[in-house]
């Protein structure tokens, strides 16, 4: 029973995600038309934009989880925050890779330090720092509290990245999806489909990643409890921890 982090929910979600992704790929790579100027390079949009959405969403969940954890010390939310951040970082790698490969044939370069790309790099680094912080050898509650603060502060980066194309001039184009969406019919549909597919995949990943985090947490707790038990056993009922303080 439960020899894995899978469940009926994740199996169904996973199946749905795979099917939706297959259809999304069909539309993105085959059925959707090339763009008038970019030609087939535009198909990278159906990869690039959804990975951005997942990254933003992941970091948003981290912020929410961090806030809830700080307010009531809920370990569940602390672990959710950590899991979501890791997924966000992974998808940040995807968005940078897909963006670079889209930039080379269209702009002419894989990279330029323009406001959006620069702020995206900073965002990526901050969350990498957040993940590193979670691995520091500190008392668990201290570590979680500091991580939570960083998790909230780091979301500022996401806001900056999101609005960088509006606030500053640069090479990167403006928001594709917004009040004034300028995407022809089948392209818009393909993008929407890819978005849904990636969100389903992200949900699946989050559930599994949270469950892994919970298992790690359980193991650590068992380790502590075991040590505490030994200590109590050694000293015939005395509680070293309390007396020493």
């Amino acid at each position: 029973m439960n020899r894995t982090t899978g469940s009926r929910l994740t199996r169904r979600l996973g199946a749905l995600a795979v099917v939706t992704m297959a259809i999304a790929l069909a539309f993105g790579l085959v059925f959707s038309p090339p763009e008038v100027a970019q030609r087939d390079a535009v198909r990278l949009m159906y990869l690039h934009l959804p990975t951005i959405a997942v990254a933003y969403l992941g970091f948003f969940i981290t912020m929410v989880g961090s806030i809830v954890y700080l307010r009531n010390g809920s370990v569940f939310w602390d672990l959710v925050a950590g899991a979501a951040a890791e997924i966000g970082v992974v998808f940040s790698v995807f968005l940078i890779v897909s963006g670079a490969l889209w930039g080379k044939p269209t702009w002419g370069v894989y990279w330029q330090w323009d406001p959006r790309l620069t702020s995206t790099t900073v965002m990526f680094l901050m969350y990498l720092g957040y993940l590193a912080l979670r691995r520091l050898d500190l008392p668990p509650d201290v570590r979680s509290r500091r991580a939570a603060i960083l998790g909230i502060v780091s979301f500022g980066n996401v806001i900056i990245v999101r609005y960088s194309v509006q606030w500053w001039r640069g090479l990167h184009q403006g928001q594709t999806l917004g009040v004034d969406t300028q995407l022809d019919g089948l392209m818009l549909f393909s993008l929407f489909l890819s978005l849904v597919a990636f969100l389903l995949v992200a949900a699946w990943l989050l559930i599994h990643r949270f469950r892994v985090a919970w298992l790690e947490h359980q193991l650590t707790r068992i380790g502590f409890e075991r040590a505490l038990a030994e200590r109590r056993g050694d000293l015939g009922g005395g509680r070293v921890g309390e007396e020493a303080r």
């Binding site: 087939d40 390079a41 490969l101």
Partner: peptide, 12 residues
């Protein structure tokens, strides 16, 4: 530009 598209999707 298919080589960029394939590379992107494949890597990701």
């Amino acid at each position: 530009h298919w080589e960029f598209v394939i590379a992107g999707y494949a890597i990701v």
